[in-house]
C-alpha cells in the first residue's frame, strides 16, 4: 500500500475515530489500558453475544497512532467471532513486533506495517490490542 494512502487512513481514523464515547451498560465489558512509559490512556468496552462481537466503544486521551489504531481495530472486530478476533489481534501484534504474520488477515490494519521503523511508537500501536486481549480474557473466563 502506498505511504500516502496509509497516512490518509491513519489520519482519518485519528480525526474521526469510530465509536468514541462510552456508555453505561452492564452488558458490556470495560477495561482500561495505558502505557507506563508514555501518556496514552484508553478505556474500551465490548459487548459479545453467542460468541460474536456485537459492539465496541472506546474513550480516552491518546496520540495519533494509538487513537487511529483503536478505531481501525474496532472496525475490524465488530461482527467477528471471538476466535476470529483473537486471531486478528495476535496477527496484528506479530506484525507490530516484527514477527511472521499473515497479511490477508489484517485488512486495513496493514497501514501500521512500517511502524517498527519508529520503535518508540510500537507501544502506541499495541495499546488498543492489549485492551482487546484483556476483555477477551474476561469473556473466556465467564464462559467457563
Amino acid at each position: 500500500m502506498d505511504k500516502e494512502i496509509k497516512r490518509a487512513i491513519i489520519l482519518d481514523n485519528y480525526q474521526n475515530p469510530i465509536n468514541k464515547g462510552l456508555k453505561k451498560d452492564d452488558s458490556y465489558i470495560l477495561k482500561n489500558t495505558n502505557n507506563e512509559s508514555c501518556i496514552d490512556n484508553i478505556d474500551m468496552m465490548m459487548k459479545a453475544e453467542n460468541g460474536v462481537i456485537k459492539d465496541i466503544l472506546f474513550d480516552g486521551e491518546a496520540c495519533a497512532i494509538c487513537t487511529s489504531a483503536t478505531s481501525i481495530i474496532i472496525k475490524s472486530l465488530i461482527g467477528k467471532t471471538l476466535d476470529e478476533a483473537e486471531k486478528i489481534i495476535t496477527n496484528y501484534q506479530d506484525m507490530i513486533n516484527e514477527k511472521d504474520y499473515d497479511k490477508d488477515l489484517l485488512g486495513e490494519l496493514i497501514v501500521y506495517e512500517d511502524i517498527c521503523m519508529q520503535p518508540n511508537r510500537k507501544k502506541c500501536a499495541l495499546l488498543p490490542s492489549n485492551a482487546v486481549e484483556k476483555i477477551l480474557e474476561v469473556i473466556r473466563n465467564e464462559k467457563k
Binding site: I39, E61, C63, C124
Partner: peptide
C-alpha cells in the same frame, strides 16, 4: 494535536 504527537 495530542501533546505526544507534537513532541515526536
Amino acid at each position: 494535536v495530542f501533546s505526544q504527537d507534537t513532541s515526536v
